[in-house]
Design a protein around this nucleic acid. Structure first.
Ligand SMILES: [Zn+2]
Ligand SMILES: [Zn+2]
Ligand SMILES: [Zn+2]
Ligand SMILES: [Zn+2]
Lengths: 164, 164
DNA sequence: GCGTGTTTGAGATGTTATAACATATGCCCT
DNA sequence: AGGGCATATGTTATAACATCTCAAACACGC
């Protein structure tokens, strides 16, 4: 009963997007920050799928909406969205994914599939607690606790070439 | 009784380096791969400290030894060293650190200090086991299990500004 | 309307990483 | 010795990722 499997191939992604955007709007209002048109559109582009998306890929997809867009345009929007916890940066991919969680900063486990590029976000108490304990023992003050694991997701593993 | 605290300010770093290089030489011989002059020198540069070092920083430091050096020179050496498990790439810094462990691929926890830039490598069974279990439950086949945590190390925390 | 802080536009620049192709070097086989 | 092969390196160019700077436009409380 962790995160629901929202990356399942068959899930209602329209609903995902709708909910993510609604949450974003609500949170920004509540926090008194501006979810401007640019930021909203970039967030929408990020939510087009559960795949991690690169900044320059966003830029290409954003240009039709606003031809004056420059790298800065995208990076500024990303900075804002990340600061609000609406987007996570995936360090090992130099890429970004949407986050459903409403709290600005939270620990997480990202499962990054090398085949389908989808990223599943989980918050497994067991792992995170063990980590917290280990850090305490090491006298290390953590600023973030994102764990990124790369591999093959269960769906892609299922579709693997039978034998070889 | 984890990894010894080799990043302590006072430790005998000459010994660190000597041992790391000796291990590297031994492993490469054993594996029948060539620790060429370039690769050896790059590894030595990486071991100059326990701080994570950037590729272009290595390049600058390498040029006096070999003025023809280009980015490719460094990246190729790094690729080799990483493949042999002698160096780890720190994804969240786009940087590299030396590894003392002899097995080519192993799980690890990297504690990355934002103040002193030193990186401490640990292999805490508790955390890694919990992670393995979580991954199994998620049906995810991991290829690597490097956990990178950024924050403040115990030494830097000790030296922090008293109060503010 | 006015001042203040925030957001955006525009261009240049900085940083990190790989592609593509040529050359050299060592080693095995004949 | 000479040919073929694998590995390593040299060389040039470019792709990919990210930030800086300065000025203009905008939002919003007064
Ligand atoms: Zn979805
Ligand atoms: Zn997959
Ligand atoms: Zn040392
Ligand atoms: Zn430190």
């Amino acid at each position: 009963m962790n995160t629901p499997d929202t990356t399942a191939p068959s899930h209602d992604h329209q609903q995902c997007v709708k909910q993510a955007l609604a949450t974003a709007e609500h949170l920004c209002t509540q926090r008194g920050v501006q979810l401007t048109a640019i930021r909203h559109q970039v967030l929408e582009l990020i939510w087009e799928s559960h795949k991690a998306v690169k900044a320059y890929e966003l830029l290409e997809r954003f240009k039709p909406l606003k031809s004056a867009a420059k790298p800065t345009t995208i990076y500024r929007a990303l900075d804002f969205l990340i600061a609000q916890g609406l987007v996570h940066r995936v360090e090992s991919l130099n890429a970004f994914i949407g986050c459903r969680c409403s709290n600005r900063h939270h620990d997480q486990l990202l499962l990054i599939c090398k085949l389908c590029q989808e990223v599943e976000e989980r918050t497994p108490a067991g792992v995170l607690d063990a980590l917290t304990q280990e850090l305490e023992q090491a006298g290390f003050t953590a600023h973030n606790k994102a764990i990124e694991i790369r591999g093959i997701c269960h769906r892609c593993a299922g579709q693997a070439v039978p034998e070889k």
